[in-house]
Structures are given as C-alpha cells and as structure tokens.
Design a protein around this nucleic acid. Structure first.
Lengths: 108, 108
DNA sequence: AATATTAATCGTAATATTGCAATATTAAAA
DNA sequence: TTTTAATATTGCAATATTACGATTAATATT
C-alpha cells in the first residue's frame, strides 16, 4: 500500500523520521556539507558542485527546507540557503540520549 | 529515473545517508525506541506493540539490520534483536560536528 | 524594453518503498 | 513425530521518490 500510518506513532517518532528521511539521500547530505563548507550562503553553486540537474537540486533543497534542515531567504535575484541548526540539534540530542540509554544495558 | 548516483558522492556521505534513511520511517524509529525501552532483548513482541503485520515488522527489522542500527542473534526458536550503538555514535558525532561548524558562521 | 540569470514548477518515466496475505523455514514442545 | 511458535520470504498492489527536460516566474543587466 505504501501508506504510512503516521497516526499510530508518536509526534516525536514522526519528527525524528521526517528529519532523518530528509538526510536519507547522499545528494542531500552533500548539499548540507556544501552549505557547511561555503563561507557564505549559496544558491545555484550547488548545481555546479553536484552531478545533478537544476530541477533535481531545487527539489532536494525543497525537501531539506520542509524538514527544517535549511532555511532560505530571497537575496535579489537569487535565494540564499543556509543550515538551520535547530533540526540538527534535535537529532544530536536524540541520538545522544539513545546512546546513554543503551550503554546501561547488556544484550545479545 | 529514481537511480541514485551513489558513485558521485563520498563514502561518508553515503554512509550517513544509509543510516539516516533507515531511521526515516516512524515505524523504524518506534522499533528502536521499543528495543531501548525493553529490559531484555526482544523479538516478536514488536509485532504486538506496533500496528503492523508480522511480515512488515520483519522487513523493517531487516532494513535496520542492514543499516547497522541493530543486530540480531538467534536464541533458540526466536531471534534476539538489539541496538548496535556504533551506528548511533556515527550519527551523533557527525551532527555534533555540523553544529560546531555552523555556529561559527553567520548567514541569512 | 529586451535579454540574461536564477530558481521554482510541471509533466513524466524509472525505480524504490511500504504493507500485507500466503507460504516457507526453523526450532522448540508435546 | 506431529504440533506449535517465531521469523523470514515471496508475490503483489498502492504509493512515493528520484531525476530531468521543458516551461514559467521573477529579478538584474544591458
């Protein structure tokens, strides 16, 4: 069916899944790393950097933005995209908590 | 096309994407949390816990295992699944580094 | 105003994911 | 050895994702 029964899961579970899903493609990870590397916010340089066509990059940017991983502001002709730390903080703390919980226990 | 040009991205980018993708579904996040909550390693209790049929849970477990997020060991009749911290550590450190890098800069 | 630049959107093809019923497999229990 | 329990696998339908060419919309430049 392919339908994801989001209702059956907690808000937190859905939040984590949405953010993680956005990072679940190497092109989007590459975009994040490029935004990180560039001193200033970029726009279409990503197209030159990645082996992907402009509409594809635009689509990936949209998904990253929807998931809250980046934000974009209009800068004249172009659009300035940059990383939004908040989402990354959510992930980092979520995983940190998991690791703390796991190491308390023994298994397998 | 749907083809992911994994070759064009770095090993690290692909590694992060694979792990993140595995967590990109609320059911798999819920499975992780359930494994975390349970004092002992579990097997098919997950099927009773989640609103998903047994083959579906089995498939999700397989994907989590392929991504290195959990490991399973045969325990007689059943299979004992549990969290593999290593993958979570990879993610945590990756995001921690991103956050450190971001806060140094100003943008948008 | 005409043209170039930047980026979003539309349409569409190829492929992947999700979910489950049915079935197979494996090992314990009776 | 038959039965039971726990999982995995297969096959398939519904849907989502990925990618890109063509087009559009909006601002800059000339």
């Amino acid at each position: 069916m392919g339908a994801t029964k989001a209702d059956h899961f907690t808000n937190k579970q859905n939040q984590i899944a949405i953010i993680a899903k956005a990072l679940g493609h190497p092109a989007r990870v590459a975009i994040i790393e490029y935004l990180l590397k560039a001193n200033e916010c970029i726009c279409s340089d990503i197209v030159n950097e990645l082996p992907l066509a402009q509409p594809t990059v635009s689509q990936h940017l949209k998904e990253l933005k929807n998931a809250g991983l980046i934000k974009g502001s209009i800068e004249g002709n172009a659009i300035c995209y940059c990383i939004d730390e908040k989402a990354f903080n959510v992930l980092k703390e979520y995983f940190a908590k998991i690791i703390l919980t796991v190491t308390d226990k023994k298994c397998c």
